[in-house]
Structure formats: C-alpha cells, structure tokens
Write a protein that binds this DNA or RNA. Structure first.
Lengths: 301, 301
DNA sequence: GCGTTGCGATAACTTTCAGGTATGATTGCG
DNA sequence: CGCAATCATACCTGAAAGTTATCGCAACGC
C-alpha cells in the first residue's frame, strides 16, 4: 500500500466515478482502475461496487474512506512539520554563551526570539571561550553570544558586533574615588586591585598590562577571583577595586559603584558568532532577534 | 512522497545506518540512499547527517521521525479496519424482518449477535414480504428474518428454518372453548372468526380454506384486521376467535388464551433468508447467532 | 605511517510497474 | 434500436525503483 493508492481511492470515493476521478488526478482511467484494484487485492475486500452507472462505496470502502483521509492528512502534516523546520518556525537551536558579558543581551534576545519564532526551543550552553568555539566548529552549537575572540580563532566563523561595553572601575560605595565622575589611570594604579584568576582569564590580565603601561608604574593585584560575583563581592567588601566592563552594573546592583576610566581602554566587544555556512533558518532568526535587541539604547553607564 | 519513503526513512533513522537498514528492508544500499535523497529533496531539507561513521538525525529528521511513524501507524490501522470488516468484526448489516412472526426470535438473535460481533451495527427494516425479498435481491438487505416464502420466490436466495410455530386458536379467557385443552376444527368452524385483512394477507386466508375444508362447512369471518395487535384486541373483546401461530402468545400476554388446534394445520415456519452468493462475514455471523438462538428450547405453547 | 576496514555515494545497468492508448462489455436512455 | 456513458481488459512505453560494481573518505590497528 502506498499513499498513491489512498489518494486515488479517496478521489474516486468522493466523486463516485472512475472517469471523473481520473480526470482530476491527471491520469488515464485504466491506470486508476488498476491502482484501485491493486489496493482492493491487498486489503482483501472490494472497496467500491461498480455498476454501469458509476460506482458506490462498499461496506469496506465506507470504513476505509475516513481512514484513508486521515492517513493522507497525517502525511501532509508530517511534511508540513519539516517545512516548518526549514522556515525556522519549529525545531531547536543550541546557543552557547559567556554568562557575564551577555548578562544584558541574552535575556532580551531570548525574549525577542520567543516572539519571532515561538515554535523553536532554545537550549543554552554556558561554556568557556574555547568550548564555545569548538562547539560551533563541530556543529553541537548553532551560534554563540560572547566576547569577540581573536581573529585567528575565527576560521569559518563570523562574528557580528552587537554592543560595546566601556571598561570601568568598580568601587565600593565608601571608596574615595567613588565620589569622582571618572577615574584616571594614574589614580587607579595606586589602588589595590581585585582581578580575575590569571590562569582562567589570560586576556583579562593582558588588558591590565596594556592599561597601565602608559603610567610606567606597576599595579598591585591583591586578590584573584574566578567569577564575576566573587569579584564584585571582593570590591564591595573594600578589599580593592576592579577593572570591569560597564555591563557589570547589572550584576552589581547598588552594592558597587562603576566609574568610567580615563583614558578608556578598548571596550568589551560582545556579539554573535556562527558558522559562515549551513546556518539554520531558526538560527538566522535568532541572529535577527539579537540585532533588534542591539538597536535598543544601551544601559546607562 | 509515498509510504515507501517513510518506511525507508524510519528504518534508517532507527538503525542509524544505511547499510543495516538496507539489509533489513531487503533492498540494496544504493537504492535506499536514493529513496532517502528523493524524500529529502521533496521535503526541502536533509533528514540525516551522513558522516563516514554512519549517520545521525538532523534537526528536520528528528522532527520528521515521529511524524513518519505516526503516518505508518495510521496506515496500518486503516488496513486493519478493512480487514476487520472482512472478518465480520466491524461494519454494518441491514436486516429485514416480519415483526409478528419474529417477535420471539429477533430480540434473542440481536442479543446473541451483539455478543458475537460487538463492532457491527445492525440496521433493522420492518417490511412486507415482497419488499423483504426485493431488498435481498438488489442488495439493500443482507438477510431477513421472516416466514418461509413460496419456493418460487426464492430465486438465488436460501431459506434456513429456525423454528416452527403450530397454529392455535386465540380465545378470550371468558370463551367456553378456553376451558378445553385443545380445540377441534369441527368446534372452531361454528365460531365467529376474526381474520387478517384478505387483501394484505392472502396466504392467511388460503390457510383458513385449507384448514376448514375437511369439515365440509363454511366458516364465518366477522371481522378483518390489518395487524396482530388489532386481531388480538378483537379476540379479547369477545368479537370472535382467531387462528394464529403459537408465537402470538408473546404479544397476547394474559389477555387472550391460545389453545392447540386439532388436527393441526401446517405450522408457521420462521427462519432466515439470504443471498446464496456474496454474503458478508458479518451477515454470516448474524446467521450463526440466529442458529444458536434456535437451538434453545421454544416457548411453551 | 600505511594498509585495512567500514561507511555512504556514485555510476551503469536491469527490472518492475505506473501510466498511456485502444478497445471491449455492459447498461441506461431517447 | 442505436447512442452515450461507464468501467474493464489488453498491450505497450517509460519513469523510477532496484541491482551490481566501484569510489572516496575517515577511523582504526599494527
């Protein structure tokens, strides 16, 4: 039994005529008669009662007609489900992200994507930079929201900038520098610093070296922390101050003050990365949602 | 898209291997690859991701797999529904009947058939003898429960005797003859008779002529009624007595007495009739139910 | 490092069967 | 009765499903 048999039978049963059904199906009448007979042979019962004035449904045919329609309906739905995936209206995407830099963008993007493609499930993967890039390369991830990586790590991938967060100084509210509108590097270099763990965040320490080079003085790291929350807790406690991107204000709440740094080092570039090739429609919609979110004004510094 | 494509895809998706799926499907592997590719082309998306170590489902494939299984399942159910009709486990039969002669057998047979074939709907048709036979011939009726017709009316039909009801005399309880164990024809011929309408029931009147021939006397019909209930009402009122089959006792209740007639005329033969050819399995089961009912002891006279 | 193995894809061919044309059989109708 | 309409039959054609043989690729083992 094939869907063709069902399509043919349903048409004959609805028009109650082989001739008219053949016309509608764009086949010759004998071909249609043959297919119907094959179907009847396979099912072991005549579905149609032929008389010289057309046909009528047999007992078995009357039972089979709604069943056959249901099968065809179900088959059409199955095809539609795949086409919905192709159009990015259904399915699943795996999105990798770096938690702290995307603390502002990720929730808004997820929300926008939910409106754009309500049928697509988003699975989030909180991973390190290397794991994010590896996941993109081997196909486990469809796209990532993260800090702009080194250009040489971007083989076959495309980065799209969404937002830049200027680097700021995080201070406990009681700290004298917190009264200033902005902090100058020469003031900062004398302060005890809290930093990210050197082994986990080498690029953060490279940034610090760059930042303080102009002062000609050595800076002093009094504590290293392996997470944003720990860094902020250290700063809040008065242990020291930290250089952090402006987006950190969302995590900091009111417990820590952020002040612009002068001269400003390179801002933190956050955006999407995905493969240049073979991007699913759903993933493209996610990119679109992210772009729309980025158009909105940034959070006040 | 044909069911073949779905069968092939489901097998590959479950074995995650073209080679093993081809073996199971009893086709060569290239033929299978080709069919899957045709399906993918039609749906507009790859369903399987091929790598040199077997295959895995793509996004679209993961969505399509349960859909395809559902279609195949539904198709199998459709075929099973027809086979259930063939086996007489499902469907509908049209049963014609003569109400009064089958007053005992029909309810019991319906009950037995309900147990034998619960999935079959029985549609009853209360028709005259001629209409019953015509309905059988042109296929509107599958079988009938009725009085044995003339042999010449049985072209292409088969009668099967279920039960014989001896002819009795119906008397009002107050009637003098009601005190007797049985009524002799010579006694009966002097009584005023209530009969069925001559035009509607010629065979009934033929029976009366036969019955009284031996007495050499004329019988006297004082009223004609066109239904069993009217006949019984007339008898109950004392208008006259009637010759009726023993099964009439069920309709009569206690309002009328039935007494055997001596010498007994031919009993009323009640049974099934159906076409010799093309009897559906459900109709055969109905016949079987009727036979089982007939095996039970008859009602006491 | 290099053959070996196991996988799916490709190529060339064969076979099957859906579909086409022509025609026959039946029946209802003017 | 002839005509028109309907489905069945017979026979042919061609698309496509299937077959065998082979390729290319990647993982594995020695």
């Amino acid at each position: 039994m094939e869907l063709r048999h069902l399509r043919y039978f349903v048409t004959v049963a609805e028009l109650l005529s082989f001739t008219r059904a053949a016309t509608r199906l764009r086949v010759a009448q004998p071909a249609l008669s043959r297919q119907i007979r094959d179907l009847e042979d396979e099912l072991g019962a005549p579905l149609l009662v032929r008389n010289s004035r057309g046909v009528r449904l047999s007992e078995a045919g009357a039972v089979f007609l709604p069943e056959a329609k249901a099968v065809l309906q179900r088959a059409a739905e199955a095809a539609q489900a795949v086409r919905a995936v192709v159009r990015g209206e259904r399915g699943e995407i795996h999105v990798g992200y770096a938690p702290t830099p995307t603390v502002e963008l990720l929730p808004c993007t997820l929300h926008a994507f939910q409106n754009l493609a309500p049928g697509v499930r988003v699975t989030l993967h909180d991973l390190s930079t290397e794991e994010l890039l590896r996941g993109l390369h081997d196909g486990r991830l469809d796209l990532c929201l993260m800090v702009r990586p080194e250009p040489k790590a971007l083989r076959g991938l495309r980065f799209e900038l969404l937002r830049e967060y200027p680097m700021c100084v995080a201070l406990s509210p009681a700290h004298p520098l917190a009264k200033l509108k902005r902090v100058v590097v020469e003031q900062l270099v004398r302060e005890p610093l809290v930093a990210y763990t050197r082994s986990d965040y080498p690029e953060y320490h490279a940034m610090l070296v760059d930042l303080f080079r102009s002062t000609g003085q050595n800076y002093r790291v009094v504590a290293e922390q392996d997470s944003a929350s720990a860094l902020l807790a250290s700063v809040e406690s008065g242990r020291g101050v930290a250089v952090v991107p402006a987006c950190m204000s969302i995590l900091a709440g009111g417990r820590v003050r952020l002040r612009p740094l002068h001269p400003a080092p390179d801002a933190l570039a956050v955006g999407t990365i995905c493969r240049v090739q073979k991007l699913s429609a759903a993933a493209q919609k996610f990119l679109q949602a992210a772009r729309e979110v980025a158009k909105e004004p940034a959070l006040p510094t």
